[in-house]
Nucleic acid binder design. Sequence first.
DNA 1: TGCTAAATTTGATAATTGTCAAATAATATG
DNA 2: CATATTATTTGACAATTATCAAATTTAGCA
Lengths: 187, 187
Amino acid sequence: MEELSARIALMYPLSEPAMAQFLSIWKSTTYEKGAHLLKAGQVSNYMYFVGKGAVRIYYQKEEKEITEWLALDYNFFFSIQSFFQRVPSRLAIHTLETSEVFMMHHDDLMQLCEQSHEIEKLFRKMITTSLILSQIRMESIQFENAHQRYQRLLNGSPDILKRVPLSYIASFLGITQETLSRVRNAR
Amino acid sequence: MEELSARIALMYPLSEPAMAQFLSIWKSTTYEKGAHLLKAGQVSNYMYFVGKGAVRIYYQKEEKEITEWLALDYNFFFSIQSFFQRVPSRLAIHTLETSEVFMMHHDDLMQLCEQSHEIEKLFRKMITTSLILSQIRMESIQFENAHQRYQRLLNGSPDILKRVPLSYIASFLGITQETLSRVRNAR
DNA sequence: TGCTAAATTTGATAATTGTCAAATAATATG
DNA sequence: CATATTATTTGACAATTATCAAATTTAGCA
């Protein structure tokens, strides 16, 4: 919980009561490796935060599983479209390692946002961060080739390469497993 | 101004005083075709809304100009990273047609967000919309081929194809002008 | 209207990445 | 520790898209 509150404070420093209020709507569960937090077709009611551990967001695309996002160690993640638009999620979420996962229900969050301008502001900043990350990822996919994208990941999150199977990383980068294998072995 | 306020109301219905307050920080200017709203290297202080008209966000990438975004008729646009992070913009913005452009200064917006929870909430919803659009675009670029991306644009914004030069559309779709030309002429 | 410049298309070829199959390496389990 | 299973790599080939050059079409303007 300390890590969660530290990450929150980093985005926007809430007053003490607001922080207490906000933390109060987060529940934590420890999931075994491979456990599903969300299955495709369900409306996703939660925004998540992973403690020490690893989580994968993915979906089915014509026989294949595509990794949409990887969250390791103390990061937020959620099924953006389902959470905001309250529609069934194409995305599924499972753990790649045994992980402590914190989750906050959509309705609880919305209720707090109504009550507290501070929390509304924090939430706005969280979304802004997501938006910027989304933009950076989009440009990477649009304008970098397989090798450059691999290098970007290697620089930014070397941990991922050690802890996540190659096949998941490949589709996260938007390339095939074979191409990734070639790219990282110097070609 | 009516169109701007209509689009705002669509995102989140502000109370009358809040709407008046919010509209008061927007200034409007009519720009000739080809005028620059933002040059690369400047910190972008504004969020924009284009009335009847067309605007292009682009940047320089190794000798070439890449179109990052196209905004036609009654849509919002801005240099996301520069606006939020207050860093110099890689992106430049110019008009493709004579256009009435509304703009809102970052600091004015932030000040209103401090004062008014309602406006903070509206702003949060605006960013959420951007985030969802960004996600959709990312997936389109990652998983659709040139032909599918062209079709998506043709369905979603047929106007763009009539009013924007092919070379701009091509880089917006992440393909070359030649490939776009082939794709749209049945191949 | 005719001419010039810009935009678009077409052709030939190269580069990148994907696909499918098989081989090899790594890991887990009895 | 041996074996079964899974993950990764390698090879051959195909598909898609990029690149460069040239031809053609379109649009702007005198």
